[in-house]
Nucleic acid binder design. Structure first.
Lengths: 263, 263
DNA sequence: GCGTTGTTGTCCATATTATGGACAGAACCA
DNA sequence: TGGTTCTGTCCATAATATGGACAACAACGC
């Protein structure tokens, strides 16, 4: 009876739309499942909603064409109508355009697979990939791959570049989803701290066995990290010396991209 | 108190998600506004919802990143996160792939601008465009353009190819949106009847002054129209004789596409 | 200046709507 | 055949979303 007026202007998360927010949370989990989709139980676990609620949401979204169900597996996936809605927007994003020359340059210089990953909500989303000239390439992550912030080196880099309290809040929000990626809050927080010290994100053990990744963050003019640039390679190819070299190239190019989107 | 069990299995549109359905209705209207966006009042008018409701929905969607607001005009538009969700799906649709050779062939043969338009819900959505060799081209419709079924020749063609009651239902549902396109239910129904007789859709007066359009429908194996192929040109270039020629080419290619997606 | 019209934004009592515990069915396995 | 793990459905209930009414602001005319 006393916080009625005080809290309204600041960060009150606008009421009267629980169902819509929940539906979007479901959609974002489904998006992480790509074409293959996600079983209902996993959506329940990842969102923390009850099963009847998720079931209802998912089936309404199916009726609306926003979600599809794989007839074979019974899994739920992002439907046809989502790309159709997306057509309303102009094709390539500002970042993608700005990053293009840097990706080309760095890819040629480094020779290993290069990824551009953006932050979207509590997830990372791979939006570009360049294959290098070295004969062994790590291609496990495809354009469109989406993961909770924290489970990839790109996610760690992005979290490391934001204020610690904000990063902690996101990690806490993603906690329920870490299990599926064989990690946990403590590990993630440790990696974030390490990345802050180093100046870039690093994972000795990538999501694929025997790979190693290095990521630098890219900040928007307002100082918030919006994306990351990542190199992935077989571990043996990224010893301490080369790690240093690669990191320097990535840091240089990240700065160039920051300037391009800043101006 | 008597229809409790009877109607449940057939086409009961699953309850418990009014808000989600409404949010999607809003999104689809916003999608029609492309980058420029749509003023709130127009969303209200087009959806038939009340203003407070639309306002609430739109602002929640903004908080979620699904909708953006143009700072200059105050209009609302589809946001960043929609294409990001869309990345979860594999790139080019089955239809787009199947239609590609036909579009190329017809475009070369006809020389005027060619469009491929799909049905999505109660809208048409332009998904491909080929520019011909003739020096005057009608380029007003871009890939991503979305309009209520019935206002373009493509929409009329698609409606003409479905069972009359279903077409009437869609036209009725779109009624509130026709005004913005300077047409009305009676006109649209008349055009649909004419298209059924002709075997293809036609508009003497395109949405742009002085243009004329011809559209043939494309049906999926289950017999439902899913898309339309359209030629637009300045009216003088599409006299009765040439109209016949163009229609024949379009009908031929439509059939080829139908076979390609059927097998 | 001052009404007029056309916007968008907000409040809050209310009834409609979404919720989730409990139950049921289906598929798989030993 | 009983156990386990999944999805689907029901319905009383509480919480949620609703929309009428009011407010604020801008642009325009005179």
């Amino acid at each position: 009876m006393d916080r009625t007026k005080i809290a309204r202007n600041a960060a009150t998360p606008r009421q009267g739309a629980q169902a819509i927010r929940r539906a979007l949370a479901v959609l974002r989990i489904l998006a992480a499942g790509r074409e293959a989709g996600v079983p209902l139980a996993e959506v329940v676990q990842a969102t923390g909603l009850t099963r009847p609620t998720v079931h209802r949401i998912v089936h309404v979204l199916i009726e609306e064409g926003i979600v599809e169900r794989n007839a074979r597996s019974g899994r739920y996936a992002i439907g046809n109508q989502v790309p159709e809605l997306a057509l309303a927007r102009p094709r390539p994003s500002r970042l993608l355009v700005a990053a293009n020359p840097s990706l080309r340059r760095a890819s040629a210089e480094i020779g290993d697979t290069l990824f551009l990953t953006v932050r979207t909500g509590n997830d990372t989303l791979c939006v570009d990939r360049r294959i290098g000239v070295y004969p062994i390439q790590v291609l496990s992550i495809e354009v469109g791959a989406r993961r909770p912030l924290g489970v990839s080196s790109a996610g760690v880099a992005i979290l490391a570049a934001m204020p610690a309290p904000e990063a902690r809040k996101i990690v806490a929000a993603n906690e329920k989803r870490f299990e599926a990626y064989r990690t946990d809050t403590a590990t993630v927080l440790g990696e974030i701290t390490a990345a802050r010290r180093l100046g870039y994100g690093m994972r000795e053990i990538g999501l694929v066995q025997g790979t190693k990744s290095i990521s630098t963050w890219i900040k928007t003019p307002d100082g918030r990290p919006a994306a990351a640039m990542t190199v992935s390679a077989v571990r043996t190819r990224l010893g301490p010396r080369r790690e240093q070299e690669v990191a320097e190239i990535l840091l240089r190019e990240a700065q160039i991209i920051e300037q391009a989107i800043g101006g």
